[in-house]
């Protein structure tokens, strides 16, 4: 570097270089902290939608409903002693979760009072459509959904 060179604003100064280095170190440190924190806020590995569900028929109790998560929706497996029935647990009115009443043998929606029978057919309330049936297979004593 020569002495007669003018000190213009474009000339890299020692101070500017040190500032850049400190800035780079700061940014690296901030990144090293931010990366795991942002990653932590992401979705955990096992919350991916489960595609197939297998429930042994022997585990099902008579007249009891079993609620399970399947592909992001709640479904209900109902066993009334003959064959299992798998229905969407969302009310066909506005989508609230219906509750099984094993005394009256109906599904009851807590939101607007819709009632469905054990086959998912509407009985009373503001509904005309049945609870959506979910296709399933019976294989080797298991209810296989999906």
């Amino acid at each position: 570097m020569t002495q007669d060179e003018p000190t213009g604003s474009q000339k890299p100064s020692r101070r500017g270089f040190v500032e850049l280095c400190i800035g780079a170190m700061g940014a690296t440190s901030a990144g090293a902290v931010a990366y795991p924190v942002v990653a932590f806020l992401g979705r955990p590995a096992s919350v991916e939608g489960v595609t197939t569900i297998k429930v042994p028929v022997a585990e099902l109790q008579e007249d009891q409903a079993r609620y399970v998560d399947w592909q992001g929706q709640q479904i209900v497996i109902l066993y009334t002693g003959r064959t299992p029935k798998v229905l969407s647990a969302s009310c066909s009115h506005l989508g609230c979760l219906v509750a099984w009443d094993n005394v009256k043998h109906v599904f009851h929606c807590p939101c607007h009072g819709a009632v469905f029978d054990d086959q998912g057919r509407p009985v009373s309330g503001p509904v005309s459509k049945p609870l959506a049936a979910v296709p399933f297979q019976l294989s080797e004593g298991n209810v296989v959904i999906g």
């Binding site: 990366y35 795991p36 924190v37 990653a39 932590f40 992401g42 979705r43 955990p44 590995a45 096992s46």
Partner: peptide, 13 residues
């Protein structure tokens, strides 16, 4: 255990 094995970077936190 879920934090340590399933949550991303959970083991680190």
């Amino acid at each position: 255990t879920f934090i340590k094995s399933n949550v991303p970077m959970g083991w680190l936190i």
